[in-house]
């Protein structure tokens, strides 16, 4: 009799333990960030970038690689390139296998990195004004203004919320959306060629970017 009650008690305790919302106690960066707005998260990323670029210890020859790694890490943290890739392919995305999707995302990320990573070094603290924020469900639009050389350049960011982290999936400069622009190129290629050909073109472009001189003087062929 006592054994039966004991085992019953143990089962009850086990059940209570299993049903207890342990997850509520797991406090991570993602869940802390859930409380912050898209603008706040974007600004945090920008501030971090400025910190990294101003860090004197990273301006040495050895520090350069570390600087690049840090910038890439920030890039991945604040940009949702999976979603960007999906939006850039439009209706073609659904037809891809998971492996093809991953390959595309990786290549597209590499393409963007091979272009803009070098440019980051030239950021000299142009001021940014955070103007407006519009949130619709899991998406948000953050409107900012870059003030460079006395000129105001409107830059909008479209962000997506995954588990409390708001990440950028489209950048719109002077009304020109990155996603729309790539989408027009990709659909123009995919209309006539196969997906594998598109991947080849991206690979080719990445290789040419890496080989090209940093200081332009030669026409870059399209």
């Amino acid at each position: 009799m006592p054994v039966k009650i004991k085992s019953f008690m143990v089962v009850v305790v086990a059940a209570v333990i299993m049903l207890f919302p342990w997850r509520a106690f797991a406090s991570t960066a993602a869940e802390k960030a859930a409380a912050s707005s898209p603008t706040q998260q974007l600004k945090a990323g920008a501030d971090n970038l400025i910190q990294v670029l101003k860090d004197q210890s990273l301006k040495t020859e050895e520090g350069k690689k570390l600087l690049e790694d840090k910038v890439v890490q920030l890039f991945h943290q604040h940009f949702d390139l999976t979603y960007t890739s999906q939006m850039c392919l439009g209706r073609y995305w659904r037809k891809l296998s998971k492996a093809e999707k991953k390959e595309f995302v990786d290549l597209f990320t590499e393409l963007l990195k091979s272009t803009y990573l070098k440019r980051v070094h030239e950021y000299s603290g142009q001021s940014v004004e955070y103007n407006k924020e519009i949130i619709k469900g899991r998406k948000a639009l953050v409107k900012t203004k870059f003030i460079d050389k006395g000129k105001e350049i409107p830059v909008d960011y479209k962000m997506l919320n995954r588990d409390g982290q708001w990440r950028v999936y489209d950048v719109i400069v002077e009304g020109v959306s990155l996603v729309r622009n790539y989408r027009s190129q990709f659909s123009s290629i995919l209309r006539k060629k196969k997906f594998a050909d598109l991947l080849d073109q991206i690979r080719d472009k990445i290789a040419r970017n890496k080989a090209a001189k940093d200081v332009a003087g030669e026409p870059q062929k399209g």
């Binding site: 803009y116 440019r119 009304g175 020109v176 729309r180 622009n181 027009s184 991206i202 970017n209 399209g222």
Partner: peptide, 19 residues
């Protein structure tokens, strides 16, 4: 920059102009 980051500069410029 734009040339470096795109696959087809002609299409990219045309699209950017339109947008």
């Amino acid at each position: 920059d734009m040339i470096k980051s795109v696959l087809d500069p002609y299409v990219a410029v045309r699209n950017a102009y339109y947008q």
